[in-house]
């Protein structure tokens, strides 16, 4: 059996002179959740749109479930589900009517049973007959998900599926996605919430249209962040103090501010580094609350990535 659900070879997409996606290659395994991670304008959405047949690639080979995107795009469209950035729904229609419309478009068998099932699964029964224009973002997101999944697609493309949705609902959303992946659906998702990327089996880092790296989260972390991370929790004046702390004389690979906590990435011995920082803070009168070691997060990688770009 074919191991990969999506195969992308040297994909390039240009808009005029602007290269949105620049010669990227990757494969997506069946039943995995692959997260596309990257800053805005990195080319994540463009890549997804090419895979959905919404954009024609300028160059490169793309196959989805062994169908060639150039020849068999109509066949591909029957086996994928796509949820765009805006949770686009027909706002004059009710939740039920929206789902029923897509069920009709995809020619879903046992339509009513299927609609009932997905409405129950996504816990939107109480909104069934509500006009979608009146729904809060979190519910609209789930309705959009229902319309994209009504035909049980083999592959589900989610473009920033949780933007503007509160954290509790986001967790619920991910629980559903994970369940579907376990049942065999391949899921390709873009996000810029770093914590969410931790839900993915693998992540692809995309920056300026190029694929920077793809792999399991731990692999990527190790590759990008060599050394350890020391966190210094600062007091109220953290911005000012951070600027002072930046000038510390020790081999720092990266230093960044996350809220009131400074992440210092470096690779000398951890205890020695701690002492150096403490001493420096004393001489510069930085009132820190705490110094502790932490595992590198995707956020560190992300900031690292953007910093390299600039």
């Amino acid at each position: 059996m074919e191991k990969y659900s999506i195969k992308v070879q040297n994909l390039t997409k240009k808009f005029g002179t602007f290269t949105a996606v620049d010669d990227i290659s990757f494969n997506v395994k069946k039943g995995e959740i692959l997260g596309f991670l990257g800053p805005n304008g990195a080319g994540k959405t463009t890549t997804i749109k090419v895979l959905c047949g919404l954009l024609v690639p300028t160059k490169g080979e793309v196959s989805v479930e062994n169908y060639d995107i150039k020849k068999d795009v109509e066949k591909i469209k029957t086996i994928i589900g796509y949820m765009s950035q805006k949770f686009s729904l027909y706002t004059d229609l009710t939740v039920y009517e929206n789902i029923k419309f897509y069920a009709g478009i995809y020619g879903v068998d046992r339509e009513e049973a299927k609609i009932k099932e997905i409405i129950e699964m996504l816990d939107i029964e109480e909104y069934k007959n509500t006009i979608t224009a009146e729904l809060p973002a979190g519910i609209r997101q789930r309705v959009a998900l229902a319309t994209a999944f009504i035909h049980s697609p083999k592959i589900l493309f989610l473009d920033e599926p949780t933007a503007g949705v509160d954290p509790v609902l986001r967790r619920k959303f991910w629980a559903i996605i994970k369940k579907w992946a376990q049942q065999g659906t391949t899921i390709l998702v873009t996000t810029h919430y770093m914590d969410e990327a931790e839900n993915c089996n693998r992540i692809a880092l995309i920056n300026q249209g190029k694929l920077v790296d793809i792999g399991e989260i731990d692999e990527i972390k190790e590759k990008f962040i060599k050394g350890n991370i020391l966190c210094v929790e600062l007091s109220e004046n953290y911005v000012k103090e951070f600027n002072v702390l930046k000038k510390i004389e020790m081999p720092v690979k990266d230093i960044s501010l996350h809220g009131s906590i400074v992440h210092i990435i470096q690779d000398i011995d951890i205890e020695e580094a701690k002492k150096k920082i403490k001493d420096y803070c004393k001489t510069k009168e930085i009132k820190y609350k705490n110094i502790f070691e932490d595992k590198p997060s995707l956020e560190d990688i992300f900031i690292n990535l953007i910093r390299k770009r600039n």
């Binding site: 919404l54 109509e74 469209k77 994928i80 027909y90 706002t91 478009i105 319309t147």
Partner: peptide, 14 residues
Amino acid sequence: ENGTYEEIMSTPVT
């Protein structure tokens, strides 16, 4: 404008 067009175009509708 509403974004539903993109979704429609990702379905098999010709």
